[in-house]
Amino acid sequence: MNWYGLYTLFSKEVWRFLKVATQTILAPVITVLLYLLIFVSVLEGHVEVYQGISYSTFLVPGLIMMSIIQNAFANSSSSFFQSKMTGSLVFLLLPPLSSLEFYLAYTGASVLRGLLVGIGVWIAALFFVSLPIYNFWILLSFSILGSALLGSLGLIASIYAERWDHVSAFQNFLILPLTFLSGVFYKLESLPEFWEAASYYNPFFYMIDGFRYGFLGVSEINISLSLLIVSGFLVIVSAICLWILHIGYKIRY
């Protein structure tokens, strides 16, 4: 293993998003606060998802997880795609960095950005709702697994993409619908039967549901099952990502 090379690439990726932290950390936090403001002011008092839990308390964990995974995806996909477009990717292809080192550096930076945005949203939300932590380790596990999953998905998308609109298509037609249909804003039980059944095939649902358990101590699905399913998806997506890096798909010809 070229550990120092891996560490350097990881630091570079972190450095890159921290240099534009207004756009990469602050902006997503503000966006989520707007969601919070709108949904809570409209629905608070009208909707009670779990007995004894206010709608805002139900909503905030979902919003935190949503921002974690969206930003994890945005980080690896935009960084990698940008270096592909400017051509500076060649400077990462010439050094002795393996597919695994590449994957770990990009995914690691995505996880870190996801966590920072998540913490930002959580702190900001504390001004509006009281949200005690039920199980810290569950929160940490789901946020790391989820952001790693989306980080590697972002890497796959940007390796595949040839134009910016390919990246945004990935984001708009896959990530966004899967997030909105994952139970961030509602409980699956409240959906019509077909959509409820369909939602159980959405991996994002298990991330949101499991993460929410870390705050509320209640979930729709058994927490171990969610953990297993999310880990399973991470393994599958990472394997695909490592494979296309290994064969040099659209990178080395």
Partner: peptide
């Protein structure tokens, strides 16, 4: 080709780190 994010010295140190 250049990476628009860094200064010359930063870039060279990063490149050296990858090796």
């Amino acid at each position: 080709v250049i990476d628009p994010f860094f200064s010359v010295r930063q870039l060279l140190r990063l490149q050296s780190g990858y090796f």
